[in-house]
Write a protein that binds this DNA or RNA. Structure first.
Length: 456
RNA sequence: GGCGGAAUAGCAAAGUGGCUAUGCAGUGGAUUGCAAAUCCAUCUACCUCGGUUCGACUCCGGGUUCCGCCUCCA
C-alpha cells in the first residue's frame, strides 16, 4: 500500500508523490518562544516527528524544517514584563524547548530558522509583493497585503471573501485599504525592537516569516507543510497568498494539520490558561508514556488530556515493555512478516498510529507466547520507528517518576533479604518485604531468573 | 451568521456493506509458596429518526449534542 496523506486543501487522502524522486521537503510551523511548551505544542512536535520518521523508514531523504518565531508582540510584552532583553527571553525558551523535545525522543529538524535571522529574505519578499501590486505601504509605516489582489484567496480554509467580510470584526485600523488586508511589515514604536527597511524601522508581520523562510530553505514549491489546526486560517491561508503572489508558483502540495489537545472538552491553549507544560507532565509520566498518549489517537482527531488517559497510556506502554522484559530481543530481525506489513500499511494510511499500535500489541502477544527473540527484535524495531520502546525494558519500569524515597540500592538490599527469607521458607517475612515495597510503589516480580522490580 | 470536524462498549480508540480490531479496567481459569507478569476463556458497542439494500455501526437524507476556525494561538 502506497503512502496516502490527508491534504487539508482537498479534504481527502491523496497518494503521496514527491516533487523530486526519493526526496521530501517539509516545513512545519514551530512555536513562538516566550514561555514553556505545553502539551499542545508537544503534539505537533511528536506528530510531525513521527511523520518524518515514517517517511525516512520508507526511504525518503527528508529535509525537515521547523521555524522558531523569535520576534512578535507577545515576546516584546513578556520581555518587558520580565525586565530582560528579547534575546535573553527567546534564548531561554529555545533552550527549554530543545530540552523538552529531547526528553520525548523528538528528533531535531534539519534546520530551525529564526525570524530575526532572515530579515533580508522577508524584506525581499515584501518588496516583490509591492512591485507586483499585491501589497502597499500605508501612511502609518505598515505594509499590508492586498487580499483582493489574490483571486485564489481562501482556497485552503474553504472561506470566501464575501463571508469573511460579513463576519469581519470591527476594524480599528484605518490604515488598511480593506479590513481583510493583513500586515506584512509593522512600523515600530519608539521603544520597540526594530529593523531598518525601505518602509522605515519596523518588524515583520507573523505570516511573512514562514513564507520567506520556507522558500529560502525548500524553494518556491515544496512537498509538505504542517502545523496545528488553528493555523489553517488565517496563518497558512495568508502564507499561500504571499508566497504564490510573490513567486508566481504553486506553493505547497500537501497541507497537514494536527488536531488539538483538549482538557475537559476544551482546546488547551495559552489564552484559555488551561495548559500543562511538557516539563510539568514529565515530572509525573515517563516521556514515552506521553508520546504514546499523543499518538494513541489519530493525528487529526482531538485528544483529551486527563490523568485517566495518561494512566491508560502508561499501562499500555508497560504491556509492550513487558514483552521485551520477558524476551531479550535478538540482533536479527525477522523481515517481511505479516506484522511488519500490517504496521507499514497502517502508517501508510495517513499515519494511522492507533492501528499501528494494535499491530504492536498483537506482536507483543506473539512474543510472549513464542518467546521468540527475533520477534522481540521486530517489536522493538517497529516501535522504534514511532519513537517508542527506545528504553531498555528493565529500565523503563525503574524510571517511572514516583514519590518513593528508596534508592535502587535500598530496594536491591530488601530484595536480597527477601530472597534469603524465601530460601528459608520464611514466607511471612517474604510477604512483609513485598508489602513494604508495595507501599512505596515498588512491585516485585519473581521468575525463574530471580526477582525483578518495577515502579508502579 | 459563514465554514469545517466529531458522536463506537465502564474508559480510551481504530475500522469495515455480511467475518473476534486493539489497549486499559472487570470476571473465570492456568501458572505462582503468595503475588505480579504472562497465557486461555469471557462480559459490556457502534447518538437519533427515516431511506437505499437480501443485509448497515458502515452508504444517503433529516434531527440532536459536542468541538474547532472566522482575533493571538500548535
Amino acid at each position: 500500500m502506497a503512502l496516502q496523506i490527508f491534504n487539508t486543501e482537498t479534504r481527502q487522502k491523496e497518494i503521496f508523490v514527491p516533487l523530486v524522486e526519493n526526496k521530501v521537503g517539509m516545513y512545519v510551523c514551530g512555536i513562538t518562544v516566550y514561555d514553556y511548551c505545553h502539551v499542545g505544542h508537544a503534539r505537533v512536535m511528536v506528530v510531525f516527528d513521527t511523520v518524518v520518521r515514517h517517511l525516512r523508514s520508507l526511504g525518503y531523504d527528508v529535509n525537515y524544517i521547523r521555524n522558531i518565531t523569535d520576534i512578535d508582540d507577545k515576546i516584546i510584552k513578556r520581555a518587558l514584563e520580565n525586565g530582560e532583553s528579547i534575546q535573553q527571553l527567546t534564548g531561554r525558551f529555545i533552550d527549554a524547548m530543545h530540552e523538552d523535545e529531547a526528553a520525548m525522543n523528538v528528533l531535531r529538524p534539519d534546520q530551525e530558522p529564526l525570524a530575526t535571522e532572515h530579515m533580508d529574505d522577508i524584506e525581499g519578499m515584501i518588496s516583490t509583493l509591492i512591485e507586483k501590486g499585491h501589497a502597499y505601504p500605508a501612511d502609518n509605516g505598515d505594509v499590508y497585503f492586498n487580499v483582493k489582489s489574490d483571486e485564489d484567496y481562501g482556497r485552503l480554509s474553504g472561506k470566501n471573501i464575501e463571508d469573511l467580510e460579513s463576519g469581519a470584526r470591527v476594524e480599528v485600523n484605518t490604515a488598511k485599504r480593506d479590513p481583510l488586508d493583513f500586515v506584512l511589515w509593522k512600523a515600530s514604536k519608539a521603544d520597540e525592537p526594530a529593523w531598518a527597511s525601505p518602509w522605515g524601522q519596523g518588524r515583520p508581520g507573523w505570516h511573512i516569516e514562514c513564507s520567506a523562510m520556507s522558500t529560502k530553505c525548500l524553494g518556491n514549491h515544496f512537498d509538505i507543510h504542517g502545523g496545528g489546526m488553528d493555523l489553517t486560517f488565517p496563518h497558512h491561508e495568508n502564507e499561500i497568498a504571499q508566497s504564490e503572489c510573490a513567486t508566481g508558483e504553486h506553493y505547497v502540495n500537501t497541507w497537514m494539520h494536527c488536531g488539538f489537545v483538549r482538557i475537559d472538552d476544551e482546546k488547551m491553549s495559552k489564552s484559555l490558561d488551561n495548559f500543562f507544560t511538557i516539563r510539568e507532565v514529565l515530572k509525573v509520566y515517563h516521556p514515552e508514556v506521553i508520546r504514546y498518549f499523543l499518538l494513541s489517537s489519530h493525528y487529526r482527531s482531538p485528544v483529551n488530556y486527563s490523568e485517566e488517559n495518561l494512566n491508560i497510556a502508561k499501562s499500555s506502554v508497560g504491556r509492550l515493555y513487558s514483552a521485551l522484559e520477558l524476551v531479550t530481543p535478538s540482533s536479527t530481525m525477522v523481515e517481511n512478516t505479516d506484522f511488519q506489513s500490517q504496521f507499514m500499511s497502517a502508517m501508510n494510511d495517513d499515519f494511522n498510529t492507533p492501528q499501528a499500535f494494535a499491530v504492536l500489541f498483537e506482536l507483543a502477544k506473539e512474543v510472549n507466547k513464542t518467546q521468540s527473540a527475533d520477534l522481540a527484535c521486530l517489536l522493538k524495531t517497529l516501535a522504534n520507528q514511532v519513537g517508542l520502546l527506545e528504553e531498555a525494558a528493565q529500565q523503563f519500569f525503574k524510571l517511572q517518576p514516583s514519590d518513593s524515597d528508596l534508592t535502587d540500592e535500598a530496594i536491591e538490599a530488601l530484595i536480597e533479604e527477601r530472597a534469603t527469607a524465601r530460601a528459608n521458607k520464611d514466607f511471612a517475612r517474604s510477604d512483609e518485604v513485598r508489602d513494604l515495597l508495595l507501599e512505596q510503589g515498588i512491585e516485585l516480580l519473581d521468575s525463574a531468573k530471580g526477582t525483578s522490580w518495577r515502579k508502579s
